[in-house]
Design a binder for these strands. Sequence first.
DNA 1: TAGAAAGGAATCGCAGATCA
DNA 2: TGATCTGCGATTCCTTTCTA
Length: 373
Amino acid sequence: MAANRRRRFGNVRKLPSARWQARYLGPDGVMRTAPQTFATERQAEKWLTVIESEILRGEWVPPEAGEILLSDYGDRWIRERRLAPRTRQLYEYLFALHIGPHLGHLALAAIKPATIRTWRGKLLNGGTPEPQAVKAYCLLRAILNTAVREDEILRQNPCRIKGYDRYHTPERPTATIAQVYGLADAMPARFAALIIVAALSGLRWGELAALRRCDVDLDAATVRVPRKLAALKDRLEFGPPKSAAGVRVVALPAAAVEALHEHLADYVEDGPEALIFTGAKGAPLRSGNFGRAVKWTKTVASVGLAGFHFHDLRHTGNTLAAASGASTRELMHRMGHGTMRAALIYQHATSERDREIARAMDRRITGEGRRRP
DNA sequence: TAGAAAGGAATCGCAGATCA
DNA sequence: TGATCTGCGATTCCTTTCTA
């Protein structure tokens, strides 16, 4: 029995201690020694066979790669990824609060599915809301996916636990017509029309804040949505809606036209470019200022809508349109959802049908005992 | 469907304007 | 002159939407 034998892959040799050592040349050209010695030659050869099979299957990773700490890798991942500032901000927050403190000290290779299960349990038991825990899990999975698929320093992603990436989102409330008008009445007068138009058009906050005189056609009872107003970190910016489908013309029920008519006369400056909805001093609306100006939390509670969000007015409009007979496709048009290519092709037909929906909404509004000053 | 990105809610602090 | 209001920026947290 030779103390140093040549093999097809790697080699084994007997050490002076009488134990056996295995070595092999990796696909990266680096000669590596097994992390442990073996009692018998057979055991050393078996170990080499396993390594060879990993290389042949394309599953081999440099053993030192998995020693990178998650804190370092995650930090670099967030820094080097092409992310929008807002998303980067979100990921940094999630990593710093939920991932780093619990798993940051671990080497990538040391993170196993069991580690993930324990970590999630700790988060939830520590009072982390489930949606937060899910977000943190999804971020960690994305980071480790890069380690597996792009950097090839991990063989498998330990974040592969069924159900950990989902959580139940409670359905948002909708208001009745009477509640919408009650809310409008409870608002400072200059914001009453905003509430009614928001509820009856289904427009997003940013779309409403960006509306100009030239976008509203009271005779045709339509409102055009060509842009949105986005509150960025350092400025307000007018831009196109979130997607091409967001650019649309929405038919308004007569109740919304009536509210807009009064609002335009009382609160909107002359000129086609004048913003429809502004603050008391004419500045563009910002959600923060609006909430404070109208004491939103208290006001919605006073009309029996505690916990109601401004965005829920959009859901209210959607629900009302649905109850008025709008199909899913028609609803998507009103809401400005993105996957409605066919609807855009048949834009004329959709516009006509949209007008019908607005009329049906009117009938429903009248039927529900509308009260308006 | 996963991953990514953006929108929105809520809140706080600061500074300037307004008013009694 | 001090109190209050308002606009604005920043931050954290959560939800929705888009794209590959």
